[in-house]
Write a protein that binds this DNA or RNA. Sequence first.
RNA 1: GCGCCCUUCGUCUAUCGGUUAGGACACCAGAUUUUCAAUCUGGGAAGACGAGUUCGACUCUCGUAGGGCGCACCA
Length: 499
Amino acid sequence: MSKTIVTRFAPSPTGYLHIGGARTALFNWLYAQHAKKSGRGGKFLLRIEDTDRARHTPQAVDAILEGLKWLGLDWDGEAISQFERSPRHAEIAREMVARGKAYYCYTPQDEITAMREAATAKGEHFQFKSPYRDNGGREKNAPAPAGDEKAVIRLKAPLTGETVIDDQVQGRVVIQNKELDDMVLLRSDGTPTYMLAVVVDDFDMGVTHIIRGVDHLTNAARQVLIYEAMGWGVPIMAHIPLIHGADGAKLSKRHGALGVEAYRDMGYLPQAMCNYLARLGWSHGDDEVFTMDQMIEWFDIKDVNKSAARFDFEKLGAINAQHMKMMDDGALIAALNILLPPCGGAVTPRVTEGGIFVENPSSVAARHLLPQGEKGVRILLPALKDRAKTLIDIVEGAAFLFAQTITPDEKAAALLTPTTLPHLKLVLDAIDKIEESNWNEDTLQATLKAIVAESGVKFGDLAAPLRAALTGKTTSPNLSIVMAALGREETLKRIAAQL
RNA sequence: GCGCCCUUCGUCUAUCGGUUAGGACACCAGAUUUUCAAUCUGGGAAGACGAGUUCGACUCUCGUAGGGCGCACCA
């Protein structure tokens, strides 16, 4: 008989879906999914708070929707535009006036601003008291008189007593009503304020649980007043802590205040992102890495902390690495595909079901796929996966496979010297004898070891120039894997090219 | 300034009056090794401070300090 749980995410489209918003959305989504899964029924709704027409842009709305989709936080039904509901908000504001819970106020804004500035200058706490609150000599509830006077509708907030928020995260928070002022509900141009719109929308949408950042905690008290004025039941509230930067202060761009698409482009997996974000403030014992399903199963808003957490790229990377290791190669290649198109770059390796290939935008014809491209990727992927923190690391680690010619970087070039080149010749002669059908990691590894045993050259002295010749770099997976991935022909070609 | 909230290793956290205060990331050392990495093993590292309550406090209460958030005809 318990009611279906309805949560919502209500971002204002002023930019992208930032990391804090993403976590708020995640918690709302998780709570609804958990309810759904446990048979109680759950819905996660999306509402765009676009009442501020000046700041709102369609692109920002798209960025938020795209961000949510990428994270896998699908919402029920259509996204609701708050702006489009403004007639309904105005209707409620007028109803509150009719009920004596709100009143028309004719004091011009600039007058109030001047009073506030004067008080602040004197170091006094300013709280506006409208002379119209108790009719102020005007006829009761009279609308704006004809003329140039503009009126707003203000809430007739209680002057004494207290408003209590029984918060699922913050606990019992008590705000003295004298701290709350008669906030504006309907602006002089007839548009609703955020405070009114939120309450009306949440009520109309049947939202049962409001999960949002603590920055809304004092707003919550004001909103409770509106619920009470309308005689509506107050939803269950949960105000989650904010995310701070590594320095403990406000999250700056440098410390991670980026849109989620930026994390996608940096090569983080959406499930790793969710995992990490969930762990910021929420925990399930000592568990660190979990799947979306486990998160849904374990999540409870009551297990969310009250204190703010700092964003840490290192830990995100570690979690991401774990998730990449958990994925099978097919899924990983699919993830690489999602990543690569927006990446750009001069030479972008791209991954397809057929393997990774390199596309040079300046020359469409420059695509180059090794004959054994797909096979090479499959051979290399497990090794690459082991040492990568992001998908980008994998792409970069595999890039050597697709180079038309190897141009060793500075460090690698330093390994190709007159003293080491003879070692390369030893390798070339030995592996040239390996037949195509025997060209695999085990045979190659055995061959390398045999060279070391017979020639007395140290493995390190042999491997260093070989790695430089094959990959152009000083780091790579084991050389026997590299050679297996490159294939016989390409391997011999690259070694010979250095001699 | 006023109000509300927060405070366990460097970071994220476990603990729900009795623990050698646990785990993860990061860091350091050792092992292995084909550089780097990866892997394995080990190590250092914490209850902001001060009073209470209690047989006993990281845990409850109060104060102090530090930090965060809020105080619009912005959302």
